[in-house]
């Protein structure tokens, strides 16, 4: 048996999981994030929506430095993101991320996908790494696929493996970048259920998604972004029932039909 703390998320040391202060980012001339201010409390679930190109993916990708912000401050569990590689790796170890296109490693089996970082980053012996991986594969309900390759699994299964792969690192925070957008409709449910289960366990989550049902049910706050700025932010009860901004109303009108 492995140590029990390997089988659950690591606790956040600070009450504020992520803090973004006046964050700005440009792609060349394109101003993709404008003065973004956001504080995410420990255990909070945030859903970010908005039209494509509104900067919502860029926003969460700045949190684990897949994108670099040019102005402002981002603090992840008390650690400020700077150019320091060691610090970036430290934050990436504690922040899990799930991608639209899963980004599983096609040359490794499902089990190896999950144990890779445990072995090389956490330096667990192979037996312990396997045990942790199987624990999370069981949690996402696909332990029987462990020896297959990603290409042999359905999209929904692959996305659940991707979630398990992130969870193996005992992350303090989970980022989801449109996790269901690349899935066939009948597979969206199994992935959302996995995410709901994760939310029930108290994980701090930032989710970019257009699944408004998920937002209603799970989110503590819903954020609407447009043209790089946070236009509106509020608990789902008020956000969906009484949006204040025209742009929010227009967007919700388009996707909620």
């Amino acid at each position: 048996m492995v140590a029990p703390e390997l089988l659950k998320p690591a606790p956040l040391t600070n009450a504020t999981a992520v803090e973004m202060i006046k964050v700005n980012k440009w792609y060349g001339d394109f101003h993709v994030l404008r003065d973004v201010d956001l504080a995410v409390a420990r255990g909070e679930k945030i859903v970010i929506c908005g039209p494509s190109g509104s900067g919502k993916s860029t926003l969460i990708r700045c949190i684990n430095r897949l994108e670099e912000h040019q102005e402002g401050t981002i603090i992840v569990d008390g650690v400020e993101l700077t150019g320091d590689i060691g610090r970036i790796d430290e934050i990436r170890r504690d922040v899990g991320m799930v991608f639209q296109h899963f980004n599983l490693f096609p040359h490794l089996t499902i089990l190896e996908n999950c144990t890779l970082a445990l072995t090389w980053v956490r330096h667990l012996p192979k037996r312990d790494a396997d045990e942790v991986a199987m624990h999370y594969l069981t949690r996402v309900r696909i332990p029987e696929q462990a020896s297959k390759y990603p290409g042999q699994l359905s999209g929904g299964q692959q996305q659940r493996v991707a979630i398990a792969r992130s969870l193996c690192m005992s992350p303090k925070i989970m980022l989801f970048d449109e996790p269901t957008s690349a899935l066939d409709p009948e597979m969206v449910k199994e992935v959302l259920e996995t995410m709901e289960q994760l939310a029930d366990d108290g994980m701090t989550m930032l989710v970019v998604t257009h699944e408004m049902g998920f937002a209603r049910q799970v989110a503590d706050r819903v954020i609407f972004m447009d043209r790089g700025e946070i236009v509106e932010m509020g608990p789902p009860e008020t956000f969906f029932v009484a949006p204040r901004h025209e742009r929010t109303k227009l967007f919700l009108g388009q996707i909620l039909r």
């Binding site: 684990n64 897949l66 790796d89 430290e90 990436r92 170890r93 922040v95 899990g96 991320m97 991608f99 296109h101 899963f102 980004n103 599983l104 490693f105 096609p106 040359h107 890779l116 970082a117 090389w120 980053v121 991707a162 792969r165 992130s166 690192m169």
Partner: peptide
């Protein structure tokens, strides 16, 4: 690019990412 991002998001260093994820493929 997603393979690099997947590897980086797990906290693999550049050398680990190159050796374990990128070069084998």
């Amino acid at each position: 690019k997603g393979q690099y991002e997947g590897a980086m998001s797990l906290g693999l260093s550049w050398w680990q990412m190159t050796r374990l994820v990128v070069l084998p493929q």
